[in-house]
Amino acid sequence: MTKPLLTVEGLVKRYGEHTVLNGLDLTVREGEVVVIVGPSGCGKSTLLRCINALEPIQSGAVRLEVAPISRESRDLPALRQKVGMVFQSYELFPHLTVLDNVTLAPRKAQKRPRAEAEREALALLERVGLADRARDYPRQLSGGQKQRVAIVRALVMHPQVLLFDEVTAALDPEMVREVLDVLLDLARQGRTMLIVTIEMNFARAVADRVIFLDGGTIVEEAPPEEFFDHPKTPRAQKFLNTFTFDAVKRPHPSSLADPTT
């Protein structure tokens, strides 16, 4: 078993009276791909936002190896460099070209020389099939291309762990695949990833472990085959049922019309 890389302990997040995360514990080990699923509003995205301290939390702790990540951490920018995050809405910087989007943080935050940062950026863009779009602006790209650039922008920082927040939810169906392929490629490279997604088939394919979140706590946690084929808790069963239509499928018209049966 590899060592724990990311640890979440007793995380409590409230918005006013509303408790979103209620004492959540989670450990992600090095090289592990953990997929978080759950109904809308269960706190999946909030969890990711708490992990890199974009949200203030009410109690609990988040640690990268041994270093606590919190809004009070003095070296928070340095810690965030090690935690890559990709947003549902891409959040590329519209005033910068693709190449500048990718090299901004390496140059400003890591003080890397422009030439070196650009060399790596171009190599990564090549890997996701976008090297020829390096001089374009974000608005000239499709959603799927933008999201691939956003992934490269996170990768170029050499993060120890990557957080993906419903990165295909805003995409047209035919663009979902090109982004998921990039994520599958990263999984094959042995990257540590925490993925929030609503793509159940993808979750089954990529996950080492699936976490089902509901009501601000982990309700079920299992390897993907076990979770998807034999969910243990009624809540997970009910959730997974919403993705199938067998129960409401109408009989085929021909079987009704056949008088001999």
């Binding site: 974009l54 965030r80 959040e91 901004l104």
Partner: peptide
């Protein structure tokens, strides 16, 4: 505001 979060999450101050 999420543009700011996006920049911060990259490790910019």
């Amino acid at each position: 505001r999420v543009q700011l979060e996006s920049a911060l999450s990259l490790g910019l101050t």
